[in-house]
Design a protein around this nucleic acid. Sequence first.
RNA 1: GCGCCAAUAGCUCAGUUGGAUAGAGCAACUGCCUUCUAAGCAGUAGGUCAGAGGUUCGAGACCUCUUUGGCGUACCA
Length: 602
Amino acid sequence: MVYCIVGIYTERNDSMLKAVRETWKTLIEEQLALYAKSVLEVDIALPPLAVQTPPKPELGDLAFPLFAYAKTLRTAPPLLAQELKNRIEALSDRPRGELLVAGPYLNVRIDMSDIATALQQKIAQDGQHYGTNSSMEGKRVTIEFSCPNTNKPLHLGHMRNDSLGESVAALLKANGATVRKVNLINNRGVHICKSMLAYQKFGNGETPQSSNIKGDHLVGKYYVKFAQWAKEDPSAEEQAQQMLVKWEQGDAETIALWKLMNGWTLDGLAESYTRMGISFDAYYYESETYKFGKDEILKGLEDGVFYREEDGSVWVDLEAIKLDKKVLLRKDGTSLYMTQDVGTAIMRHKDWPFDSLIYVVASEQQYHFRVLFHVLDLLGYRWAKDLHHLSYGMVNLPEGKMKSREGTVVDADELVETLTELARNEIREKEREELVDDVDKTSHSIALGALNYYLLQVTPTKDMIFNPAESISFNGNTGPYLQYMGARISSMLRKFESDHQHLHETAFDSSLLSLSDERELIKQLALYPEVVEKAGAEYDPSLLCSYLYDLSKLFSRWYHDNQVLKAATPELVRARIELSKMVLQVLVNAFGLIGVPFLASM
RNA sequence: GCGCCAAUAGCUCAGUUGGAUAGAGCAACUGCCUUCUAAGCAGUAGGUCAGAGGUUCGAGACCUCUUUGGCGUACCA
């Protein structure tokens, strides 16, 4: 066995920490087996060795708990740890590093200099690609998110959805997958007709241009107006239903109004998306897909997969997945949400065959997706098993649930605007207007960073409370804090470039990075590719968020306590500059995966 | 009623998939700006991990029950 860490690393294109961990694990397992044989005088299968991280840096970098072997080997864990340490230290060929007995644990202090050298080369070479890996190489993944209605603007609930969708898509790409981001526009149905009807009644020909109101907000205004009107006029709901019938019949006037108002909303949404850094590779429209699933359901009916009730409605029996039963076609033959989603899924697979399709949809629709996936399975689509519902929790306010009726829904555009304004004030107060490239652009980037980080920080599956006051605070574990670290490093590197040219040729000597904080930073940097891989595999950007916060906190402490540009020797300046460069590169790369804009100055 | 999910510091969240003294941020209090951006750093205080049993050498994590809360169980989307 060759214990050349760099060699193992480059050959396997794997995280170098992982390589070191595996090396030690294998070695200790070998010694465990030998010891077991010497004690028991027979070969015995031992449980695999667990690898952990010690709770404190003083305890080393790797931890191997030995509790599990105590009984079989009739040896107390601390004694076993000592025995293994002695045996390994007696070996002539063993990896560099130090063994520590810490009670029932056998710990290892890695030789960080090797890792730092390799890491510096790797990051300098890979640049913005450092952290990408091939764990999903060749996989084609469609991811659906956002899916707004065309009767109102985006709100806070959409923002968690959008942040997650964008971030997971980016993570999958970083893991080597080919990703197709799709949006499904919900532009049909009674609710759409409501805003149209109210506009017809009260609009007086108002347009986004004439009123200077963003299209989606203008349509939303009439959706609200409908609700008010419906309170006074009990026939309002009925009229909306009638309008839907006219729409389905293709009534020219209705369609014209629908197209007009839909256009307004979509223009408004497009503007919001651009402003929030959200984009899609393809758009689907329910007005085009809703009829599509119908044929599929009827085909399933012919094949005996579904059944027809006496009133003419079509049902699926869900006993196989321990649910009751579900209607798939109304008695009048019209489509439902489910019908339409069946059609949309099939359409998507035809358009772009995928290995996996992820639906980013709130947890309240878990039942819907269980049924949908089962129905597609019943219809014989083998790819039904490749569908995944990325179910995220609700976004609540400190006062409780957002309710449109009570007007407590947080509007997305408004929120971004408020945050941008606050960031701008902050820049003014700190008198940094002259030092920042573009105040408006910078404020906006800070707002986005604050928002995306706040939303992605929480484990996706869990409900979360969005505290507007807290989200606009730039202290503590926030997006702006991370951005600030990036700006600080950038600023220092600019100084290095302009004022320290005499040091540019000084060689990088990783052994000079011997402080505890420096070791921890190097370890954290080396860990990055594994975090990207795990966050992608688990569709969980929050893992990356907490990683980034740890890294930033570590860096700011080190940076506060130790001078870089004014370090004692030219070699030390060089070493610390390289460490800072590595941190900066990882920040830049990771920011790109969680929608936090990088700022060279702020 | 049934199903799914959650409960960790005053508040918002982590907790390496069963291991070492349960960690951050906010809020509170205390230090640190003639020194690479104080949007920062360091420190103090704050815990019956909802409760009760069980499994295990070991449980915040796994099992059972209880309590509380959320969501779902539409010929709505």
